[in-house]
Amino acid sequence: MSKNYTPPKQGMFGQIFDTILVLVLVYASLMVPLLFKAEAKAEAAAANAAAVVKVSWESLGQNEIQQQQWVKLGYDPEKAATLINSRFDYSIDPMMLIITILVVAGYFIFMLKVSDKQYREVIREKFDNK
């Protein structure tokens, strides 16, 4: 029978450091995608600037009822054009897709493997060292 693991006590400074570290990681992961977005926004703004033309409800493809509802919502054709012409780009970059699949799958495989190892230790202490 092996001896149960006794963890060290953590001081107040260590507790504060660990808490702040997790928060820094969260804020960093919130901010990083902004770098990509800033680039995409600049491209979109350039494209919009190049495509400034006079718009009407007809050129925007809006039928009579749709026009009525836009007007009730406080929109004229120029204002509505921004929303109507704004589109998602769903073209798929195969390399990015493969990287994303590997990251998500790798994360779960890593977690399940390490967790299983740790869990066996927990069960051994719980049931063997009573």
Partner: peptide, 26 residues
């Protein structure tokens, strides 16, 4: 998606290397 996954991966590595030593197993 990748940025958020990076957060959870880094947090997991930090847990294994530093935090788990403070955990009472049983």
């Amino acid at each position: 998606l990748l940025s958020i996954m990076a957060f959870y991966i880094l947090a997991s590595i930090w847990f294994v290397l530093r935090r788990y030593k403070f955990v009472k197993r049983a």
